[in-house]
């Protein structure tokens, strides 16, 4: 099968899938599976007499009316996919818009987790009056969640954007995604730009976490304590967090880069009239 035929087969699929209101990842799965199907059908049809163009026409005919398939595909999308659509954003949206959405969704998830943790803590052992006052007045928790969390999320998001940018320049990720998380990570590490993003991002996060740790403990520091010594003491802890954050950022960056690459590949197909 040559590239022209492959593009025509992709067009048959895309006529049905593009108008479907579903998350990018769901549409990606639909496209891949339907493309595999029409490729198989085309192989069957091209074995019959009549030439390649006739085989393509018969393939399109067997596939059915794209508008009908679109409706049926849309009906098969579960309600929960709406959340995924929101999380993934519009295909082809700007990097900054995506980063901003990631930050505020991340903050909302963190606050929800905090609420659940506080509620669970209250269930395990009833809050004392002092504890309740400390939490509700924000003396203990607000500084941590309101002042530190935005820095952590913003830092994480910037590192993620950096990594996504580095992945975008490399080869398509389609095959990497199938090799498993660790092997895929090793494969990404082999790319110089991604390696720089991972190392640089990790160091930035390490510095950020160390600064946040110092600032969080600032009023409690005994006079004359050496902050460098304190930073070194917490280095394994902040370093571990930075490494884990880099790995998580890479997972998000990988799927975002994959979605962008996939969108660029399929959205450029000229649909034109049906065969």
């Amino acid at each position: 099968m040559n590239d022209t035929t492959r593009i025509q087969l992709k067009t048959i699929v895309e006529r049905a899938v593009r108008p479907v209101r579903a998350s990018s990842s769901r549409k990606q799965k639909m496209r891949e599976e339907l493309l595999a199907h029409v490729s198989g059908v085309y192989e069957e049809e091209s074995a019959k007499p009549g030439g390649d163009q006739a085989a393509l026409e018969r393939t399109a005919l067997r596939f059915g009316n794209p508008a009908e398939v679109t409706n049926q595909l849309e009906e098969s999308v579960p309600v929960g996919d709406g959340l995924l659509q929101f999380w993934e954003g519009r295909p082809g949206e700007s990097k900054w818009r995506g980063a901003f959405r990631f930050i505020w969704v991340g903050a909302a998830v963190c606050l929800a987790l905090l609420g659940i943790a506080l509620f669970a803590a209250g269930l395990v052992r009833a809050w004392s009056r002092e504890e309740l006052l400390a939490v509700s007045s924000g003396r203990d928790f607000l500084p941590l969640w309101v002042f530190q969390m935005p820095f952590v999320l913003a830092g994480f998001t910037l590192v993620m954007c950096w990594m996504e940018r580095s992945l975008r320049g490399g080869p398509p990720l389609g095959d990497r995604r199938r090799t498993g998380l660790i092997r895929s990570f090793a494969s990404a590490w082999a790319e110089p730009a991604t390696r720089v993003a991972m190392t640089g991002g990790g160091l930035c996060l390490f510095a950020l976490f160390t600064l946040l740790h110092i600032s969080a403990n600032w009023p409690a520091q005994p006079t004359g304590r050496d902050y460098l010594a304190m930073s070194l003491a917490v280095a394994p802890f902040t370093g571990g967090w930075a490494a884990a954050s880099v790995f998580c950022a890479w997972i998000f960056a990988r799927s975002a880069a994959e979605r962008r690459w996939h969108h660029a590949e399929w959205s450029s197909l000229p649909l034109g009239p049906s065969l």
């Binding site: 339907l34 595999a36 059908v41 398939v69 049926q72 595909l73 098969s76 579960p78």
Partner: peptide, 29 residues
């Protein structure tokens, strides 16, 4: 119409009546 097969399979999958796994080989596709 062959395109109609997959929405039906997706519905069955969502209802947990069938299970689907990606094949590992693309066989030149």
């Amino acid at each position: 119409k062959e395109g109609s097969l997959y929405p039906a399979l997706y519905r069955l999958e969502a209802a947990d009546e069938v299970k689907a796994v990606w094949e590992t080989e693309t066989h030149g596709r």
